[in-house]
Structure formats: structure tokens, C-alpha cells
Write a protein that binds this DNA or RNA. Structure first.
Lengths: 212, 212
DNA sequence: GCGTAACCTTACGCACGAGTAGGTATGCTG
DNA sequence: CAGCATACCTACTCGTGCGTAAGGTTACGC
């Protein structure tokens, strides 16, 4: 009887992490709806009622995943991009941290962006987080502008920042789908597109439609 | 009896369009899974079995929506960006057509991108379409390069194109969420980011990490 | 060594929504 | 006006998967 309990009893904190790991994995593979609580439980090496006891119903579980992955990502980026650096250096470090994170947590990224985007109950959370990112980037651009004694309409900066965030997300998807690709190199490419583009804009260059 | 039939009998082709309209609307509002066939039928002013008779089960219905919206969009863009124009003009017209389409078909855009992305059964279709876009953009960049007697590694171009497509998608989302925003203006902003960025890259400029 | 509390399980109820069976009305063709 | 095809409906079945009730088992305090 007391030979091999096969499954050891573990403290709550440990089980919760195992469950979240399993949930992120299954959610990313199947999508929110197709993921069944049974599969998550099985993958975590635990039975379903435990999941409900610790993390609550499916929706709460997903939010918990979202929250954990989101926190990890924000920390990774914030830790890398110190606010007292010059703008391009800040952007570069932020990008490097971002792509590094995605490369190391492809499942987490998938849950965060691919799944969350389309599901009305969660889309708001994602939008909030993205808004924070956009604000930071826009602030950075604004700093760079003011350092040159210039100004720009707020909306313009916001939209540019939005485009940069979108481009980064898109490349992150590309990275997640190409396991052999190098996060560092991807970050460099993104930096080229972002900074040379945004950089020229800051210099005052403007492209206009030719005619009509 | 023959007073007011309340709902006239209509030919199949008309009903199908009404159903697709309703489906796009409901899918975009609720998401694929949360959308019920009952709600779609009701919104189309018709009963459920008719939907099944004409468009088949839910998955087929969604694919039909996808197909219609996708075709409309491709046509709008292809019609605007003639291949014999100079690269920047081509890009500009393509972008203008794209944002014009999104502004006029916000629901369709939502279905196409927000919903399709996260659902494994459909994600492939979207990926194929996006790949076509990327290929076109990459080809354009390549043309511009060759015109200057230069070369670039294929992967680099592809990644840059991917970033541009991602940025455009992201701004399209922004546009879809800001009903008061002007598609034309959004297109101009995107063009600034895209062309001045990519343009500088084509001139041979390269940004490198500073140290370490 | 025994209670008790936390951990963990099997086995079920139940709602919701996809898909269908079978029947009714309408308009077109001869 | 007969006949037939097509548009259309009400009312049902049934699978699937979320969430739970009630009961076993292991560890730790005394």
C-alpha cells in the first residue's frame, strides 16, 4: 500500500503552478473553447475538481493564465528598458526583451495574443495592456521629439506607436511559428523597421500622396 | 389569408446574402463559439433550418463568411494597386484601399482577423492569405531594391514585409475600434511609418546595437 | 495510535446549442 | 386549375463538456 503513492501530495502553491502550466499549454494548442477542463486536469496530472477548487471555473482559470503570462512579460520588458537611457537604446532593449520572452514562452504568447484577441470577455483585458504599451512607446517618441525642440499632435504619436506595437506583435507571431528562428535577430530586424521609420519621422520627414 | 404574408418568399441567392450579412454581424459581435445559429437565423429574419439548407453547418457557414469578406478585400486592394506603378505609389494605393475597406466593413474585418486568428480550424486559411500579402509586399521591396542595382537576403525582405503587414493589421484594428476616425488619414499615417522606414532600409541604412 | 484537516478521486446532473424530421404554404408551368 | 418544385416553419433529439456532491486516502498534531 505505502509502496509508491504514484502521485505525491503537494502543497497548494506548487499544484497551482502545475495547473497553470498545463492550462497555458492546452489553451495555446486548442484555443479557449476547444480546450476542455478534463484535458487540462489530465495534463496537469491531477483531477478536475482540484482545478475548480484552486483556480475556479474555466473563465477564471483563463484569466489567471493571462495574468501570469502578462505579468511575466511586463516584468521582462520593464526590467530591460530603464527609463534613464536614450530613446533608441530603450526601444532596442525593450524589443530584445520582448522577443526573448516570446521565444522562450511561445505557448504563453499564443494564449496572450492569439486566443485573447477574439474572445469578447477577455479582449478588454488585452486592450488595456496594449494601451499601456502604446502609451509608453508614444511617450518615448514624444521625449525624442521634445529633445529636438519639436512638437507633434498626440493622436499622431499614438497611432505611430500603435503601428509599431502591431508590427512587433506580428513578428512575434512569426517567431512563434518558426522554432528555428533566432529571437535576437528578429529583434534587430524589428528595430531596423521601427527606428529608421520612426526616426525619419522625428527628423521631420513626411511622405505625402503624390497627386489628386 | 392572402392579406399580408409578413415575410415574402425570396429567391435563394438573396436569402443567402442576408444570411451571410447576419452571420458576419453576429460572429463579429460574439465570437465564433458564442455566436449561436439561432441568433444568426433570427437576425437574418429567417428560421434555422433554412440556414442549414443553404449554407450548411456552422463551420461551413463561417468559412463562407470568411470567403466572401476575403474576396471583397482582395478585390478592393488588387483593383487599386496596379502592378505597373512605381513601388511607393503602389503601396500607397494598396494601403488606401485596405483602410477604406476596413472602414466600410468593420464587421467583416473583425471576423476575418480577430476571430479567425485564434481558432485552429480556420487559422490556416488566414495564414495562407496573409502569406500572399507578405509575398506581394516583399516582391515590391525587392523590385525597389533591384531598381537601385542592389540585393537583399530573401528572409530579410520577408520579415520586413511581415512587420509592415502586422502594423497595418494593427492600425486596422485601431480604426475598427474608433468609429469617428478617418480611414484616409489612417492610411496616410501608416504610409509614413511604412515607407519612410522601409525606404531608409532600401537606401542601405542599417541600425545596429550600440555596444556589448 | 487516533482524530482531523487537507488533498484527491469517481461518478454524476444539467444546460445549452448544433443539427434534423416531417409537415405547410406559395408560386411557377402546362 | 392540377401538379410539382421550392421556400419555409415548428418542434424535437442528442452529444458534449462545464461544474459539483459525496466519499476515500494521506499526513501531521497530540
Amino acid at each position: 500500500m505505502s509502496t509508491t503513492p504514484a502521485f505525491k501530495r503537494l502543497p497548494r502553491a506548487v499544484r497551482e503552478q502545475q495547473m497553470l502550466d498545463a492550462a497555458v499549454k492546452v489553451f495555446s494548442r486548442r484555443g479557449y473553447h476547444a480546450a476542455s477542463m478534463d484535458e487540462i486536469a489530465e495534463d496537469a496530472g491531477i483531477s478536475k475538481p482540484m482545478v475548480y477548487a484552486y483556480l475556479g471555473p474555466k473563465e477564471d482559470l483563463f484569466v489567471a493564465c493571462l495574468h501570469r503570462e502578462c505579468t511575466r512579460m511586463i516584468e521582462a520588458i520593464a526590467g530591460a528598458a530603464a527609463p534613464d537611457l536614450p530613446p533608441d537604446e530603450r526601444l532596442w532593449r525593450g524589443l530584445r526583451a520582448f522577443f526573448g520572452f516570446v521565444g522562450a514562452h511561445r505557448d504563453g504568447w499564443s494564449v496572450l495574443y492569439r486566443q485573447t484577441r477574439g474572445e469578447p470577455p477577455f479582449a478588454g483585458q488585452l486592450a488595456t495592456m496594449r494601451a499601456r504599451m502604446v502609451e509608453v512607446i508614444a511617450g518615448m517618441l514624444d521625449d525624442a521629439l521634445r529633445a529636438q525642440g519639436r512638437e507633434a499632435r498626440e493622436t499622431d504619436l499614438e497611432v505611430i506607436a500603435y503601428a509599431l506595437v502591431g508590427a512587433s506583435e506580428s513578428l512575434a507571431d512569426w517567431l512563434a511559428d518558426h522554432p528555428t528562428a533566432d529571437p535576437e535577430k528578429t529583434a534587430t530586424r524589428m528595430m531596423n523597421v521601427a527606428w529608421l521609420g520612426a526616426g525619419q519621422l522625428i527628423e521631420g520627414a513626411v511622405w505625402r500622396p503624390a497627386s489628386e
